[in-house]
Design a protein around this nucleic acid. Sequence first.
RNA 1: GGCCUCGUGGCGGAGUGGUGACGCAGCGGAUUGCAAAUCCGCGUACUCCGGUUCAAUUCCGGACGAGGCCUCCA
Length: 472
Amino acid sequence: MTSGIPQLSLYNTLTRKKEAFVPIDAGNVRVYACGPTVYDFAHIGNGRMAIVFDLLFRLLRQVYGADHVTYVRNITDVDDKINARAARDFPGLDLNEAIRKVTEKTAAQYQSDVTALGCLEPTVQPRATDNIEGMQSLITALISRSHAYEANGEVLFEVGSMPDYGKLSGRNPEDNLAGARVAVDAHKKNPADFVLWKQSSADEPGWDSPWGRGRPGWHIECSAMSERYLGQLFDIHGGGLDLIFPHHENEIAQSRCAHGTHAMANVWMHNGFLQVEGEKMSKSVGNFFTIAQLLETEDFGGRKWAGEVLRLAMLMTHYREPIDFTVRRLEEAEGKLRSWQQAAVGYSDADHEPDASVMAELADDLSFHRASVALDVIARKAGRDGGEQARNCLAATLAFLGFSSDSLLAVDDSADTAGIHAAIAERLAAFANKDFATADRIRAELAEQGIALMDSKDPQTGERRTKWEIKR
RNA sequence: GGCCUCGUGGCGGAGUGGUGACGCAGCGGAUUGCAAAUCCGCGUACUCCGGUUCAAUUCCGGACGAGGCCUCCA
């Protein structure tokens, strides 16, 4: 374990309290996060989940060592929405072929999206379709332990067989019935019972099983994949707030009842939702944006946004709080990141640990926003006394957090670097002759190309120095 | 209807039973040939109503407001 790292504390949805985090095995800290269902491009809400758990992953790696953390983020590639999308987009193709096309395309896009958002690759990214066997053995175990039953061609989990059902979400089956929106099916013993396995028609994707050719229900996948890679009991399970019920509740029911364990994961973490410009993101309101759209089109705010800016905009607010995603927020994030990069650019993160106060804030339930105050302090310190130590520390801390030290300052391919440097040299020569008119003309010409100049004095010699950057 | 969050200044966003974090924007100053950048300094807030207390933005109760879940939405 790296020295000097404070105790981690994490908010646990299961207890609704912040608790000291104690890993089951400090030699292998195990985290599972519910990843996307790949029926369409990921939207920015999906991006928040990826970023939040990436930050957790990075923190755990720093505390316990990079080789002592296993982070599993699954890809759900069997789902009725995928089937529908496949049938819609590839009507001529064989369904299985069409499904493969849909999931491959969207999974690849997801990878590139979250990479742009500065997320490390998880240790394992299992696919549901590679884990059908594991799901089937879980279902078999549930049936033999009398927690599941076959009815009407389906295998259903019997909610009434588990006294703890509803503990995570703080609700009981009676509460749910009050909403009167739970589908009442004659074949269910209890309306809240949920599907573990369902039959597939000839033109639906299916796998052979003791219960006929069919496909898994919507929750059993995560139980199977987490068991395979993390074991029957692991440390942290995460996802979006909306997954608490029913998805995570049902995962717990399946895993615990199949294994006869007292818990599935010790800590349950859920990230908050985001709104866009004050309203819930939805296609009908017209404020629905995919990650790719923000990165590559000018649909949001009339311009493109760097992945790191989106990342910072997400992290500026604590992960459990709601975020109102706005153009102004992105502009603020961009300004903040640029100011950090200006202080860190050119300095190395090698051989430097992330700043201790930043680590301490993150260790307290991922309080990134307070950590960012520490970054402001370091950046200002570096600006004030030009301290190399501060700059190196800042660069190392930015790298740790998933930010580069120069991405927003990097030279645009279209900029004529040599020409700019020549113009700056010419301007400095004009100064030598007190020819301010020429100097100002050169500055104005560069400004027209979007190049901003900043003069400073060398603290030692008093000599004029000129920096430049591309202004939008 | 049930369950769960949350309500801080122009904006973002911490935090605390008693000296008004921090950032952006704004204002003043230093510096500068002029700018920009940088540095120094300043201002404005705790949804409302009760209660507890010597003292509440902070604790308790209520109201109002916002958001989420109650079907496969991060």
